[in-house]
Design a protein around this nucleic acid. Structure first.
Lengths: 187, 187
DNA sequence: GCGATATATATCAAGCCAATATAGGGGCTC
DNA sequence: GAGCCCCTATATTGGCTTGATATATATCGC
């Protein structure tokens, strides 16, 4: 198992996110949002396990009013473990798309509903492309590459949807002539 | 929650996959492999729940030697439930990519390791594009659209990786001049 | 002054995945 | 024909993850 939640946390720490709260932001809005996700229920237990294994250190900072901040830092052993995990054979990408699954049943919907779905889907990827732009300044080479790749990929995917949607919409009206004619012309 | 495992099973049944074993294949190698996944641990309980709710029917077929086959069929109520679930607001696509996460830490690897990662990554998408071609004959409009979209999307993504990789590899050697000069190239 | 949002840690129920158990058939090698 | 692996087929379980919730305070807009 190459990339469990402990490895993901080590990566976030190496990238400069040093509290549980910050790590979650890195996966929610930050540089990792495009290709990984991680929630509190995984992060806090993972940090405790990493601490027990000596792969991270923790210094508590008392703050005015706010709850104490636990600032974590990756150790040299941690960085070695991260490097080792990244070199193991990696599982291939897995996409979970409710939009695509819904579109697989376009024949069960009205053409108007399908068109709205396609609009929302393409727009979502255009918005995501913009979100990917605003990340940290001067990232390492790998993350610079991923920003460019992610932005172009999202825009290209949106364009691909817009390119092929006409064929789908034509297929649907061809199957349901009543819609094409605008009135009940029979089947 | 729009697309839980019960909804996914209803969809697979509507698409003509009518046993638990078959449904899994639809998500493993079949038309849904690109955008959803579902395992036995979800499928069998979901089918039981759907049966209890009257959204599917089940007829047991005794077979020579082999265990009895439970053939499920979606009911009209089931198709209505499927339609209703697909029209609820859908969550946006979520990608889980171990390759991209690993590449985010390219600065922790040797250039050779990064190059191999990029090779494997692009090749994986080219192979996936081929796998997507062999699906069932004469699919409904939505799935025809998704096949075209999926194939073009995978190929485009592979090309996008290959287009941007040179910049990454240049960045990495610029950071580590020893590698550029050819001295002590540890792999 | 009031609700909304942000900081920050932590836990829990519900759900899901990967692995395993069970069981017979077909095909392959030696 | 013995051993072995893969395919069909259903079912269960352990362990992990998500999403929601609890707690406590500060700041910001209005």
């Amino acid at each position: 198992m190459p990339l469990d939640s402990k490895t993901l946390c080590l990566g976030a720490l190496d990238a400069g996110y040093n509290t549980g709260y910050d790590i979650r932001k890195a996966f929610e809005d930050g540089p990792f949002q495009l290709y990984q996700s991680l929630s509190y229920g995984s992060i806090y237990p993972a940090l405790n396990a990493l601490l027990a294994d000596g792969l991270v250190t923790c210094t508590e900072q008392a703050q005015d009013g706010r709850p104490d901040k636990k600032v974590y830092a990756i150790t040299e052993a941690g960085r070695t473990a991260l490097r080792a995990a990244l070199l193991q054979p990696l599982g291939f990408d897995r996409l979970r798309s409710e939009f695509m699954f819904a579109l697989a049943f376009a024949h069960l919907m009205s053409p108007g509903q399908v068109s709205r779905l396609l609009d929302d889907y393409a727009r979502g990827y255009r918005e995501l492309a913009e979100d990917l732009a605003c990340t940290d300044a001067d990232p390492p080479p790998g993350r610079r590459f991923l920003v460019r790749l992610g932005q172009e990929g999202c825009l290209t995917w949106a364009r691909c949807v817009e390119k092929h949607r006409a064929a789908l919409e034509a297929d649907l009206t061809a199957r349901d002539p009543a819609v094409a004619a605008g009135a009940g012309t029979g089947d």
